[in-house]
Design a protein around this nucleic acid. Structure first.
Lengths: 249, 249
DNA sequence: CGGACGGCAATTGGATACAACTTTGCAGTG
DNA sequence: CACTGCAAAGTTGTATCCAATTGCCGTCCG
């Protein structure tokens, strides 16, 4: 299952449990049984407990009343809020980067990625693989996070983005065939380019606004994907499994 | 059952270690020894490790190279960035609160606190105790965090604020005698009032800007306190101990 | 017939035992 | 005198063990 077998037990436990949650093997609301996980992941209960404590901090599980942990579920509002939160934090990172000045090589790397995204999106054929785009997009955002040169900001973003539906590429996967998506990604890359321009010219406020608005693309995707789930519940993408259907809000 | 010592072992360990760090008994950069802590806090190593994992997520300790944890130290830039981060997050909370509408009773409570802060600050005598102000100020910010009605935003702020120098009342303590401080607090309470006004009228952008600027007061304090430390290193307030003196970068 | 009490089983929270690793100190050698 | 290598001790990471609490189920009493 996992090719990364070279890790220590508590790393295996952490990654393993997170994957079980993302795969839907552990479903939101379900109580997490330590002995069961210990057996399934072939480690003792100690690293399982360590992993559960971390997953609690990360937001994947939460303490149950009076003992143990349950898999956490998120409302649709939580998902939208998480996206807006990322937009705000990336906006802060962008502003700080612009105000403090981005290292030239970092700026160069951002430009390179923007160009390569354009190339990837220009490739014809509706059946192209999204993964190159996803990798490039991840790279761009990673550079932005570092551009602020602020460990505090970077950590805050990194922690948030552990929640899959808050990540820059949430909901982008697996639907590249739609022409509408390609158009959206082109638009997003225009924003990338404008952001680089703002950073280069030290335009902090513009950079912040762009980064903030940029995250709204994810909100749009999320809306679509949630609507799609209403009709075909089986097509739930991994990020979606954590989001419970709205029952009564 | 336990109204005397309402704490399980791992809670005692968490609070105990955090306090040891804040008190300076464990100093930044120092390696944390599990057996030593276990003996000092009268628990076994298991809850100690659980606490260290959580403190790692909270930012108080960080994994050492190759094993164990060391007490984390923060640069002066980190402290300023943390304050700006809080301002940004509280700005988001304020905007969301204004846009979504604040529950009337919550708004009432905010108004009450603002009035009571004015009363506290109007009391004559340079030797007044700051703690009433601190409590009221904490209460106001707590209400703001809840005003957004967003668990995600609230959690993000709550996590950040665990770092003492990022909290709303950081560096406010113990220097109420200065007349300048009272003037600053009066100004800050004017911002509180304006913020409530913005929330009441649904002015999201104004509320955000106010909350953001409001956090700059803490940055001002921090600058003063850091300057004071240069002259009298012994007067380090608890929040300051985590911040290392600027050496290189 | 329904609700409450009691006992049993399973699970968690904590302590301890153990093995692998890291670091330090000392000694021997170049 | 310095450097390297070995050894020993302390420390971490993991497993197992124990006790106490929880939740469940059956039975008994109202």
């Amino acid at each position: 299952m996992d090719e990364t077998q070279e890790s220590s037990a508590h790393i295996r436990a952490l990654l393993g449990i997170r994957q079980l949650i993302l795969d839907g093997a552990l479903r939101p609301g379900e109580r997490v049984s330590e002995p069961a996980l210990a057996e399934k992941l072939a480690v003792s209960r100690t690293p399982i407990r360590a992993a559960l404590i971390r997953l609690n901090e990360e937001g994947f599980v939460e303490p149950s009343s009076s003992s143990g942990f349950v898999v956490r579920s998120f409302s649709e509002s939580d998902a939208f809020d998480a996206i807006q939160l990322r937009g705000t934090l990336e906006g802060l990172a962008a502003r700080l980067a612009a105000e403090r000045g981005v290292p030239p090589d970092l700026l160069e790397q951002m430009k390179t990625i923007v160009s390569r995204i354009d190339e990837v999106l220009a490739e014809p054929g509706p059946e192209s693989d999204v993964s190159p785009y996803v990798r490039l997009n991840d790279g761009f955002h990673w550079l932005l996070w570092n551009g602020a040169q602020s460990p505090m900001v970077k950590e805050a973003i990194a922690r948030l983005v552990r929640l899959p539906f808050a990540a820059p590429n949430a909901f982008t996967l697996g639907q590249f065939s739609l022409p509408a998506l390609r158009s959206n990604l082109l638009y997003a890359n225009h924003q990338h380019r404008a952001l680089v321009d703002a950073l280069e010219n030290g335009e902090g406020s513009r950079a912040e606004a762009l980064a903030r608005e940029h995250s709204q693309a994810a909100a749009t995707y999320l809306r679509d994907v949630l609507a799609g789930r209403e009709q075909d519940p089986s097509s739930a993408s991994p990020s979606l499994r954590l989001i419970r259907k709205r029952s009564g809000a």
